[in-house]
């Protein structure tokens, strides 16, 4: 985000994250990728939680990318709202479509 520390709006003074931050985030992403594969090896033991674990890890990874690599952490609220609204409307699409399909009376399908 371009913070105008000075009063001249023609000079951009962006917030530049230090290299160490990028390295830490990348390291965390690699570690989480390994973790998700390790968890996959214990799929049988985890049972129904296996997919929950996999998606939780994916969610954390996605948040790291969004907040630090895409700098939404330092961005303004409007851009955060724009990003969030995509998920809100996908949720709407999913809920109302499932509302139909879940309440349908299925004839027995050979498939």
């Amino acid at each position: 985000m371009a913070h105008s520390n000075n009063n001249n709006p023609n000079i951009l003074s962006p917030h530049i994250a230090p290299m160490a931050t990028y390295l830490k985030v990348a390291g965390a992403l690699f570690a989480l990728t390994f973790l998700t594969v390790i968890a996959h090896q214990f799929k049988a033991q985890l049972g129904m939680f296996a997919s929950a674990v996999a998606f939780l890890i994916a969610l954390i990874k996605a948040s790291l990318v969004v907040l630090w690599f895409m700098h939404l952490k330092d961005d303004n609220n409007m851009n955060r709202a724009i990003f969030g609204s995509a998920f809100a409307f996908l949720f709407l699409l999913w809920v109302l479509t499932e509302l139909d399909i879940i309440t349908r009376v299925f004839e027995s399908s050979p498939l």
């Binding site: 998700t36 799929k43 996999a54 998606f55 994916a58 990874k61 996605a62 990318v65």
Partner: peptide, 11 residues
């Protein structure tokens, strides 16, 4: 891809 990977390959 972060979501496609568990969705297609793991779950």
């Amino acid at each position: 891809w972060i979501f496609l990977f568990p969705l297609l390959y793991l779950v």
